[in-house]
């Protein structure tokens, strides 16, 4: 019989880390304030006491050095899990991620693999203003050589890490900071989780809402809202941002003939743009209406609550977009 328990997203990530540290002695954590402080989002709280300072390594504030050190350690057989406080800070390590981790396997003609996992938070919603709130995962999803995932559910937060660690390529895990306190019931016996496929989180027939990460919950709520008005929306959680699971997207769009892409990144040059383009390329003749996008307003994220709220995709924006595509076309 399967037993279940209530778990928060934060606890799920911590359990995933603990599990990985227990299963494989090559796994170690490295990042700013992950040890004594317990992690800036308290994800790694208690792990220092449990696994010791050799494997739970507090680093100086030097993103480039410790991300690069993670690459180097992965090159000699370790399985580093590097934590960067937020995606904004990852820009200080962009050289290592883009110029080394993403290039070395190919540039060396396949002589090296880099089984490195980099976790970082992303996204807005906590009034942290423009240097702690951006959603830049789309940038990373642009880069060949990287795998990019965004666990939006507690189950994925629990399961994706181990799969990522078993992957021979560098995997970036983006955790939307608004998710840490969300909770769900997990089975005690966990099945392996893939990091290749999108998931249909709500089946529907009238329109496909494609999203990931922090906007999944809003999209699901929007779907429930329009359901009351008789519109049956399918909601796809991308899960993997690179490579994208075109098949799941197209299969859905070919059935619903309408698509709305919800993305907390800015519209210009975004993941939403990429998905929209792919739908146009692969399912144009199945569409009954132009693809809609719901993205963040093109401004640095402001501090004031009402301004931040206005900048971000909200449930009402998603509902409005869904209504437009359903009203449009034939």
């Amino acid at each position: 019989m399967t037993t279940t328990r209530k778990t928060t997203y934060r606890e799920a990530v911590r359990e995933a880390l603990r599990d990985a540290l227990s299963r494989d002695e090559r796994v170690f954590l490295m990042g700013e304030d992950i040890g004594r402080y317990g992690g800036c989002y308290a994800v790694s709280l208690g792990l220092l006491e449990e696994f010791g300072p050799e494997r739970i390594r507090d680093t100086p504030l030097s993103e480039s050095a410790f991300v690069g050190a993670g690459i180097g350690a992965a090159l000699v057989g370790m399985r580093p899990v590097v934590e960067i406080m937020t995606v904004n800070f990852s820009l200080l390590a962009l050289d290592q991620i883009v110029n080394n981790a993403a290039t070395m396997p190919h540039m060396s003609g396949g002589q090296f693999s880099i089984p490195l996992v980099i976790r970082m938070t992303t996204g807005a919603g906590r009034q942290l203003a423009a240097q702690h709130s951006h959603s830049l995962e789309g940038w990373y999803a642009h880069i060949p050589g990287l795998r990019v995932v965004a666990p939006a559910t507690v189950a994925d937060a629990r399961g994706m890490l181990w799969t990522a660690l078993c992957d021979p390529d560098p995997v970036l895990i983006f955790e939307h900071a608004s998710l840490y306190n969300t909770a769900a019931t997990l089975a005690e016996q966990l099945a392996p989780v893939d990091i290749d496929h999108a998931a249909v989180r709500r089946a529907g027939t009238d329109v496909t809402v494609i999203t990931y990460g922090g906007t999944l919950a809003k999209s699901l709520e929007a779907a429930e809202e329009v359901a009351a008005a008789g519109v049956d929306a399918e909601v796809i959680d991308l899960r993997a941002l690179r490579p994208l699971d075109d098949a799941t997207i197209m299969d859905s769009v070919r059935r619903t003939h309408r698509a709305v892409v919800v993305d907390e990144g800015w519209r210009s040059g975004s993941l939403a743009a990429e998905i929209s383009a792919r739908i146009t390329e692969q399912a144009f003749y199945d569409l009954d209406a132009p693809v809609e996008r719901v993205c963040t307003v093109e401004t640095p994220i402001p501090y004031a609550q009402h301004l931040e709220r206005a900048a971000l995709p909200q449930q009402s924006d998603i509902v409005a977009a869904v209504r437009r595509v359903v009203a449009g076309g034939g």
Partner: peptide, 23 residues
């Protein structure tokens, strides 16, 4: 490897050494 980003190889060498020490 030859690294064409000036100073880009230093973090790698730190990591190679870290992996060795930990192993």
């Amino acid at each position: 490897g030859g690294n064409a980003i000036v100073a880009g190889g230093l973090p790698l060498s730190v990591g190679l050494a870290l992996g060795d020490v930990m192993s």
